[in-house]
Structure formats: structure tokens, C-alpha cells
Nucleic acid binder design. Structure first.
Length: 434
RNA sequence: GGAGGGAUGCCAGAGCGGACGAAUGGAACGGUCUUGAAAACCGUCGAGCCCCUCGCGGGUUCCGUGGGUUCGAAUCCCACUCCCUCCGCCA
């Protein structure tokens, strides 16, 4: 969430930032008004409390001195003050809750570096890597759902039988290929030869409500997540959720920053309202595999360097897989609610004939960390500071698998396995044609 | 799921209605001593919010969480959460 003091001291700048992403500004005005009320009430309440505290102290002293009558008089006085204080206190609590509730629904301010624009079409292509989409041959122009069926490596029919529409199932070479890709990504992050080591985490995939609030997935996107009502737990839509909340309510030592984590998990999304859109094959499903990179930073400079580091790692993987991809700089209006700046990576899938979003690399400034209350402290210095958070996928696997299957399909119907993955697959070079 | 024990500052740990934001010890930081270090000694040593005549300033809140009793709660009462031990069940 945004810093209330910033909203208070620079309301126009905040308004302008939110307007860039086309956000509703009514909540902001409401907050400003409630905040004014709250501060008036709080000041008065604190004054009364101060009086109650002094009077109570006097009561004690008078009793000790044996001056019972005087003590009784003061006691009555203090009670009256206390009653007023209680009423004000209730009002203050209510105002505070209202403000927080509104604050949670206000999206982050876009980075000034994020391009202008309100729609997807306004996103800027930063660069494209690999062969041009027009250069692929006919044998690569087969959608992965057909390849999957042909090779017996994707069995959507049975997944649907077991779990319903928009679930997928990998079999045989498909399942092994997926596992090899995941392993490759995790191991690359653990390899010191490739730069800073990202600590591998295997987090829970069922989390508490407050954990979902921390990253900004609740309350706004309640419809998107599966909720296990009996135990009041939510299935995570991304490992970003548990990773970002790992340090919730903690004060990190500045010397430990940046802290880098990676996690492989299943991700669950209800995809409410997306029925029928891009749902064929591996394009969109309720449960999918993803490896996430997530880092805590001490501020903007460190955070942006980490965002670039995540992007480089994700790109590297796509390069190793021999895929064509492009990097999009999301315009202010297309940014997710918690993000300040996002780079999407889209891999080209020749069979589907589309660029598929396989990764999203975002810098959240202190928006998530303020929600989750993640702070850092420099030993010996006074006070604490809110962290910055960064995360990105490396990768969202189903679409990456799709792009790999289509890109590496051979004229004989087999699929060439990228070299980096071969050692993980018994040194096989191809998924054999049927 | 059942029975018992517990939750206090960075850590350990006292306090069980007023003098407690909290003893004591350790850690950390600054200093004295020393060629340097250790030891010893002295000092500092939590966070949030609000106000202002912005000063090494004032007020307030926080002893697991939420309620209650009281003039006054870390201390009493209630509920909940989490942790530990034992039993049951289970991959």
C-alpha cells in the first residue's frame, strides 16, 4: 500500500501517478478526508489519556497518604475522563480501519520510467531476440496441443475427466521434460558460477488470508483465488505470495540485503471471466507450474539492479532453450496493482502463431513490503526502513513447454530436446516421433 | 482429536494491580586503559503513531492476539492463536 504520509503531504503527485494508470481516484479523496478526522480525534484522545494517566497517579498517591476523600473525588474525575477517552478511542479505531481498508484497494504508483498508456497496445517492445516469427517452417507450425496428443505427452482429456476443464496433465516425456526444465532453472539459480546465489525455498502452497493481503492479491482479487473455506486458507496464485511474506513483520539486518530467493510451486488460479479465452492446450489452466525469483532490497537503486538481474536470468533460460522472445515494458495502465514497473517476457510459439507471456518481472517499490510490514535496519542507526521487493518468473512453465515443443518440432514429427536439458533426460536428443 | 505447560526488549530471564517501557545478565555500539588485543571500568543501547515554538522537544501506544474488570493492567477475568511435552491418528 501507499505511504499515508505521502498521500497527505503530496496529494497532487499521488493523484497524478494514479491517473497515469487510469485508477479510480475516489478512494484517495475519501482517505484524505478520513485521515484529517482521524488525526483530530487522535490528538484529543491522547490528551485525555495523558490526563487520565496523571490523575490516576495522583489517586494512588492520595490513597497511600491516607487521604481517602480527596482520592475518591479524583477517582470520579478520572472515570469521567476515561469514559470520554473510550468513546473517542472507538471512533479512532473505526476511522483507522476504514482508512486501511481503502488504502489496501489503492494500487501502487507507476514508476516514472514506465511508459505512458492505458492499454495493452501501449506497451513498449524493448527488444526482440532470436529468429523472426516469419522464419519458422511448416513443420513448426503445429500447435502444441496437437504435438502433445501425437506424441502422447500431454493428456488434457484425462485431466479434464479428473479435475474438470482447464486442467492439464503431462505424461511420459512431457512430464520428464517439464521436470528437467524446472530442475534446470532451480539449479542455475543455485550455481555460484552464474552470479549471486538465489536460495531455493519450498514454501507452503496453502496460505493465510493476511499472507495474500501482503502481496496485494487480496482484497482486490478475491475472485481469482481458490479459498479452502473450512480452514480459511487460500491456494497461492504464485510463489510470490509466500516468498514476499517470509519476512513479514520482521526487521531485516541491512548487512543481509539483498536477500534472494527462488521457489518452484504449483500455482492456482480460478481464471474467473477468462473462460474460453486462450484456454487450449497449455495456454491457460487452473493449476500450473512456475519457478519464481524474489528478492528484498533496501531501496530503489538496489531493487532496480535486482529487477535487471531477474530479467537477465529469465532471458538466459529462454536463450538456452533456443526460443525467440521479446521484452515488453508495460505501460502504466497495464501494470498489475502492486507493481511500479514490469517487464514481461513473451516467447514466440510458432504453432500457435503467438507471443506467449512466459515471465513477468516486477519492481514493487515499498508497496508490498509496507503491506506485509517488512523492514530493514542498519545496526547502530536509529529507526527502521521499509524494504523494496522485486520478483519475476523463471519461468511460467506450461507456455514455455508449448514454445519449446513447437519451436523444436522436426519434419519427422519428433521434438529436439535443447542441449542443456539433455543430461537431465538420460542424454536423449529427441522426444521420439510415434 | 484429548491432557498438561508456556508466550515479556536482539538473546536469556525477572516482574503477578500504582514507583514498569519494564530488574538483572549476555550481545552490540561509544569511551577510558593498552604498542595492539583481551580483561576491567564508564556510558549508550526497542518500535509505531501524533503534535509543535523543529529542540539532544512534548504526548501517546505496544509485555502472543482480541475483548473485559479497574481511577489505574505486563500483572486480574474471558476468548483465540502459536510453541513445547505426553496420548491418539497418519504419508
Amino acid at each position: 500500500m501507499l505511504d499515508l504520509r505521502r498521500i497527505r503531504s503530496q496529494p497532487d503527485a499521488v493523484r497524478a501517478g494514479l491517473a497515469r494508470r487510469g485508477a479510480d481516484l475516489a478512494g484517495l479523496d475519501q482517505i484524505l478526508e478520513l485521515d484529517g478526522d482521524l488525526r483530530a480525534v487522535t490528538t484529543e484522545r491522547d490528551d485525555l489519556r495523558a490526563k487520565v494517566n496523571t490523575v490516576s497517579k495522583q489517586v494512588g498517591e492520595l490513597f497511600k497518604a491516607g487521604q481517602r476523600d480527596e482520592a475518591e473525588v479524583l477517582k470520579g474525575e478520572s472515570k469521567a475522563l476515561g469514559d470520554r477517552e473510550k468513546a473517542l478511542s472507538t471512533t479512532a479505531d473505526e476511522l483507522d480501519a476504514q482508512i486501511r481498508e481503502s488504502l489496501l484497494r489503492i494500487p501502487n504508483l507507476p514508476s516514472p520510467d514506465a511508459p505512458d498508456g492505458l492499454h495493452e497496445d501501449d506497451n513498449v517492445v524493448l527488444r526482440t531476440h532470436g529468429p523472426d516469427p516469419s522464419s519458422f517452417s511448416d513443420h513448426q507450425r503445429v500447435p502444441h496441443w496437437d504435438i502433445g496428443t501425437e506424441l502422447g505427452i500431454i493428456d488434457s482429456e484425462r485431466a479434464v475427466k479428473i479435475s474438470g476443464s482447464m486442467f492439464t496433465m503431462y505424461r511420459g516425456w512431457g512430464a520428464r521434460l517439464l521436470r528437467a526444465m524446472i530442475g534446470h532453472s532451480l539449479d542455475a539459480s543455485a550455481d555460484p558460477a552464474l552470479g549471486a546465489v538465489w536460495e531455493e525455498i519450498r514454501p507452503p502452497t496453502l496460505v493465510k488470508t493476511e499472507t495474500m493481503v501482503g502481496t496485494g492479491h487480496l482484497p482486490k482479487f478475491e475472485e481469482e483465488a481458490y479459498h479452502v473455506e473450512r480452514d480459511d486458507l487460500w491456494t497461492i496464485p504464485t510463489a510470490e505470495v509466500p516468498l514476499t511474506s517470509m519476512a513479514a513483520d520482521e526487521v531485516l539486518d541491512h548487512d543481509d540485503l539483498p536477500m534472494r530467493f527462488t521457489a518452484y510451486t504449483s500455482c492456482f488460479r480460478r481464471e474467473a471471466g477468462a473462460a474460453g479465452r486462450d484456454t487450449r492446450g497449455l495456454l491457460r489452466s487452473h493449476e500450473f507450474d512456475k519457478v519464481e525469483l524474489m528478492a528484498y532490497a533496501d531501496g530503489e537503486e538496489m531493487a532496480i539492479a535486482l529487477q535487471e538481474e531477474v530479467l537477465a536470468r529469465s532471458e538466459r533460460i529462454l536463450q538456452e532453450f533456443g526460443l525467440s522472445y521479446r521484452i515488453l515494458d508495460l505501460c502504466a495502465g497495464d501494470l498489475g496493482g502492486s507493481a511500479a514497473r514490469t517487464w514481461d517476457i513473451e516467447a514466440y510459439a510458432p504453432g500457435v502463431g503467438e507471443w506467449l507471456e512466459v515471465s513477468s518481472v516486477s519492481w514493487f517499490a515499498d508497496y508490498q513490503a509496507r503491506r506485509a510490514n517488512v523492514r530493514w535496519k542498519q545496526a547502530g542507526e536509529k529507526g527502521t526502513n521499509i524494504c523494496h521487493t522485486v520478483n519475476g518468473s523463471a519461468m511460467g512453465w506450461p507456455r514455455t513447454v508449448a514454445a519449446v515443443l513447437e519451436t523444436h518440432r522436426q519434419p519427422d514429427g519428433s521434438v529436439a530436446i535443447p542441449e542443456v536439458l539433455q543430461p537431465r533426460l538420460g542424454c536423449a536428443t529427441h522426444i521420439p516421433a510415434p
